[in-house]
Nucleic acid binder design. Structure first.
Lengths: 232, 232
DNA sequence: CGAATGGTTGAATTGTTTCAATGTCGGTGG
DNA sequence: CCACCGACATTGAAACAATTCAACCATTCG
């Protein structure tokens, strides 16, 4: 495997403002690990022994309710932090991180965090920004679920995924990892049946193109208008 | 008005671990302000010039959508931080804070925060804890809205309010500030009609007692079972 | 090739909203 | 002090969006 290099961290918001020497110090403490598709990096309620940065691949972060229902909290894309339970003052992970494709992550021991933060106080600022961003996203989702009906929620979810992980193709922009109707349902609080009907409807109207665990958005602008409920 | 005293901050998680001298320093920079019932402390999208601690009273934090729908993000109870947009790396407040009863808040200038944090690094840790708690709450709510039907969401919301702001009376535990059916609807993503029907139903069964802008929980345990969907 | 996983689509059902009407409480002003 | 107005609440009936139930098809993979 290639040697770990500070360039991996250089353009992450959390590490912005740190010099090369600092980045070298920080990366010297990191370990990297492969995660096979379908494997978990950590599981809900397990001891939060590490925190992570995704280098390669895509993860689902999901919560499972006592009743057994799954909810996808977010998708992690390369360059993002995840598993930051310690920083949140928690002893255990609040959710499970599952690789949806073969992935690679960098990890640091949780107990290293206080020391890192002491040496580089800007890490605390960056972490608060990250946490703040997550709060904002989560509140945005609460607002969405409170005020919008299913079709528009699905439209917003798809557009978010396209933005994060869209790959341009000749028929439109495709979400760059396998995603099932069930997954979309678990992101939007509905059933796979409803998602299937909605996507079929859109396909008829030329907005998207479906496929097994695949979604291609052919007309992002019209989908956006639909999501915002402005005419159509 | 009474002089500001460090004891106001002493038992807040954010300031835990700071000595008397530090608390004196911090409170010396604070200003206090009365907020009349119905007035706002700050409004959504306004410049985040200050951050706050509630000393007395109760606030609603609400988001308004472009379409005009309101969603109550949370209720602020005495001792809690609010308006911490700067710490989240934002220039503007993401929501509006509205006093539901006459209230008193302590405030600090946003520009004082970096200096405070530099002098007392434990503030950063405490703030990350607070932010983490908010993320957890918000995700919990997303899960709830994704997986539970309205009646149980309303039950959970009422139980949370009772826990935060319940006042023991002879007929049960009453929520200690005026709260309408519409408010409960805006917390749970439903309509005031549905909330009214649900509360009426509960009243018939002896679980709660209603009233104008008033909710008294007579049988918290049975309401809890209903919220958890375990028998009834 | 067979089994498993993912997807589609009709039909029936249901929880919730929408529409509408009416009632009640509390404060304000004549 | 009482009348009236506005805000809050209740409750029926109709409409509807989404779920549930069910059957079936397609694709992938071992």
């Amino acid at each position: 495997m290639a040697l770990l290099d500070r360039s991996l961290l250089a353009d992450m918001p959390l590490f912005a403002g740190l010099g090369p020497a600092a980045l070298d110090d920080i990366i010297a403490e990191a370990r990297s690990a492969r995660v096979a598709k379908g494997a978990t990096v950590f599981e809900q309620d397990a001891d939060a022994t590490s925190f992570f940065v995704l280098l390669h691949g895509h993860l689902q972060v999901l919560r499972i309710t006592p009743a057994g229902a799954q909810v996808i909290v977010r998708y992690v894309v390369p360059g993002e932090l995840f598993g930051i339970a310690v920083q949140m003052g928690r002893a255990t992970y609040p959710a499970t991180a599952l690789a949806v494709v073969d992935s690679v992550a960098l990890s640091w021991s949780s107990i290293a965090w206080p020391r890192m933060m002491e040496r580089f106080p800007s890490l605390a600022v960056g972490m608060m920004r990250t946490l703040g961003q997550r709060i904002d996203d989560a509140h945005g989702r609460v607002v969405e679920m409170s005020t919008e009906e299913v079709e528009r929620r699905v439209a917003h979810a798809i557009l978010r995924l396209v933005k994060q992980a869209g790959r341009r193709g000749d028929r439109g922009i495709t979400i760059d990892f396998p995603i099932s109707r069930q997954d979309v349902a678990e992101m939007t609080g509905t059933t796979l049946h409803t998602v299937s009907r909605i996507l079929s409807g859109w396909e008829t109207r030329g907005l998207v193109e479906g496929g097994r665990q695949k979604i291609t958005v052919c007309d992002p602008h019209r989908l956006f208008l639909l999501a915002e409920n402005r005419a159509e």
